[in-house]
């Protein structure tokens, strides 16, 4: 176990180094720079901008800047946002809740709906339900998230007026009910893609269970089919589902980014786009690192959970 953890940790560090190097290179080798947004300020001069670039240490050689950034990161200093001078971790932290809420709600929704569809499809293999769900899942996997978002806004906000078109809460309200109402559309849209993944996965897993000997035996012993099925499916399919949840994290984060844009949800995805737009390099770098860490941690936790649930699996 300890060896496994150390190995994973070491691997993760190498990965993070690579991620940071790639991110840093992309940001800094491109033309323009974090100060260009001030170019159109009345009375601004190239000289003034150069002076500020100098003060901010942006004129140093890139390897020096990178190592400096890295060294500070190692000591827990993620740098400060160019925009409001707050520590990057604070900036990310203040957007984290919104994203986690959205991701959590949509994961829950997609798992429940996906599991239901998957199990039902497997049990009624070859039925109209199975068939149409397979097709629907493919379509769901193929639809651009943002487009479904737009269509949903058009239908439910602009035409029917049932749901708010965006934001996390009404200004001045912000009660739980208010947030839930705002949560409905983005959650459903974000869940859509993952429902398909879950459903297809659960279908395969259930089929495997159904075909196993002990289920047939149990069936022969006269146990109620539904109970047998549920018990064994939960027992057998749950493990890989945890892994799958871990593996889906990057997709989920990426999806959240797009969904947040369409619904102006104040989460990390929108922060990322804003920061790109304003050339807030420390925050962009921070978000790249943070999402990578999140994904790595998600996978690790998934692996640990699997080992915990099933003692037969040894971590090596």
């Amino acid at each position: 176990m300890a060896r496994f953890l150390i190995g994973r940790l070491w691997q993760s560090i190498v990965l993070l180094l690579l991620v940071s190097l790639i991110g840093f290179m992309v940001l800094n080798l491109a033309p323009g720079g974090p100060l260009s947004q001030f170019a159109l300020t009345p009375g601004m001069t190239k000289e003034a901008l150069d002076r500020i670039a100098e003060q901010m240490g942006l004129n140093r050689p890139l390897p020096v800047q990178y190592l400096d950034w890295l060294w500070k990161l190692v000591r827990g200093d993620w740098g400060k946002s160019f925009r409001d001078n707050r520590p990057v971790l604070d900036v990310i932290g203040s957007h984290l809740f919104a994203t986690l809420l959205l991701m959590g709600a949509s994961t829950l929704l997609s798992m429940l709906v996906g599991a239901w569809i998957g199990i039902r499809s497997a049990v009624r293999r070859g039925s109209l339900f199975d068939y149409s769900m397979t097709v629907l899942c493919f379509v769901a996997l193929s639809v651009p998230t943002f487009w479904i978002g737009l269509v949903a806004i058009f239908l439910f906000s602009l035409r029917l007026g049932w749901l708010p078109a965006g934001n996390m809460y009404t200004v001045g309200d912000g009660s739980v009910r208010d947030i839930l109402i705002h949560l409905v559309m983005p959650t459903c849209v974000l869940a859509l893609v993952n429902v398909a993944t879950w459903a297809r996965y659960m279908r395969t897993a259930t089929l495997e269970v159904i075909n196993q000997d002990f289920v047939r035996t149990a069936h022969a012993k006269g146990l109620a089919p539904r109970r047998i099925l549920m018990k064994h499916i939960v027992g057998n399919a749950l493990l890989p589902m945890i892994t799958l949840a871990g593996m889906q994290l990057p997709t989920l984060l990426g999806g959240a980014l797009v969904t947040e844009t369409v619904f102006t949800w104040p989460g990390m995805g929108r922060l990322f786009l804003d920061s790109l737009g304003y050339n807030d390099y420390p925050v962009v770098m921070g978000l790249l690192m943070f999402s990578a860490i999140l994904v790595l941690a998600g996978n690790l936790i998934a692996d640990l959970l699997v080992a915990f649930v099933d003692p037969r699996i040894r971590l090596e």
Partner: peptide
């Protein structure tokens, strides 16, 4: 057309 960072950087200023 260029992303803002590129557009209003040296492209414009210089």
């Amino acid at each position: 057309n260029l992303p803002p960072a590129v557009m209003w950087g040296d492209h414009w200023m210089l």
